[in-house]
Design a protein around this nucleic acid. Structure first.
Length: 259
DNA sequence: AAACCTGGCAACCGCGACAGT
DNA sequence: TACTGTCGCGGTTGCCAGGTT
């Protein structure tokens, strides 16, 4: 624990860091985050590495806006599970809890605003109609409590929900990265795609992570994923390997990415 | 054109759960 | 059992681009 010190980096991840993290995750798997943080030479906490992987670098992630179907599912699941974002996320393959959480927040804010707007604008007429039906309270109560849902549905689908890769492309470039077939900073046109990383690393052929890693063969051709995955490839081996090869890999990354 | 506002998202933080010793 | 390390979760914050005034 407590691996955080004054040299620990915080804030936005750089392209170089992403490369490095992807490399080491494929090396050692997406567990043992503290270990990965340590051997990778990244000045990040294991926690930060995990978050970056889970929310951004994981190749299984979908990019772009939630589809109407996903949005509906989020609504359904939220009514069922509440703010159990990870639980909800598990039902939406390729979506992260963070993404859903963010979506929900934005969504709820929108609804709250719409509701506020509609209640203020309609308050006069509403108050008169409410007073009218005070005698048949059950029905009126239902109606009064339902607009939330109705507004929800409406605002929701009005936003479109189409895959907006293109819109997102020209969209924001927060901290170098924005999702939507995510584009990250800095290539010929000033950006590079997250997919480029995977292409560069030869990892994009499948949705699943493959035990295959091209650049690595340049670094340590004698060791293959079979080695890594075989039962004889123990954690000690990993650590020893990391010790012995760290300088080499750092060098590789810097030469690869500096220009 | 500049200032301000808003939406969207990445990342951090604190805490609890769990496993290993 | 107590302690320690690690991971995962939910809440929150901060940043930035685009829109509006």
């Amino acid at each position: 624990m407590g691996q955080e010190d004054e040299t620990t980096r915080k804030g936005p991840w750089t392209e170089h860091e992403d490369f490095q993290l992807v490399f080491y995750v494929h090396m050692f798997g997406d567990r043992r985050w503290d270990f990965i943080a340590k051997v990778s030479g990244l000045k990040r906490t294991g926690k930060s590495c995990r978050l970056r992987w889970v929310n951004y670098l994981n190749p299984g992630l979908k990019r772009g806006k939630l589809s109407p179907h996903e949005e509906r599912l989020v609504l359904e699941l939220h009514s069922k599970f509440g703010n159990r974002w990870s639980k909800i996320a598990r039902k939406l393959p390729g979506r992260t809890d963070n993404e859903i959480k963010n979506y929900w927040r934005t969504h709820m804010r929108k609804i709250a605003q719409e509701k506020k707007k509609s209640t203020t604008s309609a308050s006069s007429s509403l108050s008169s109609s409410l007073s009218q039906c005070s005698s048949s309270s059950s029905r009126c109560t239902t109606v009064a409590s339902m607009p939330m849902i109705e507004t929800k549905e409406r605002s929701f689908y009005d936003t479109g929900g189409v895959d907006q890769k293109i819109t997102n492309m020209k969209g924001k470039n927060n901290n170098n990265f924005k999702s939507g077939t995510t584009r990250v900073s800095d290539s010929s046109d000033g950006y590079y795609w997250m997919d480029d990383i995977w292409n560069d690393l030869g990892l994009l052929e499948d949705d699943n992570i493959k035990p295959f890693f091209d650049p690595y063969s340049e670094i340590a051709p004698s060791l293959t994923w079979d080695n890594c995955l075989s039962t004889s490839w123990t954690m000690d081996d990993q650590e020893e390997f990391a010790e012995n090869n760290f300088h080499l890999t750092s060098q590789h990354f810097s030469s690869e990415l500096v220009d």
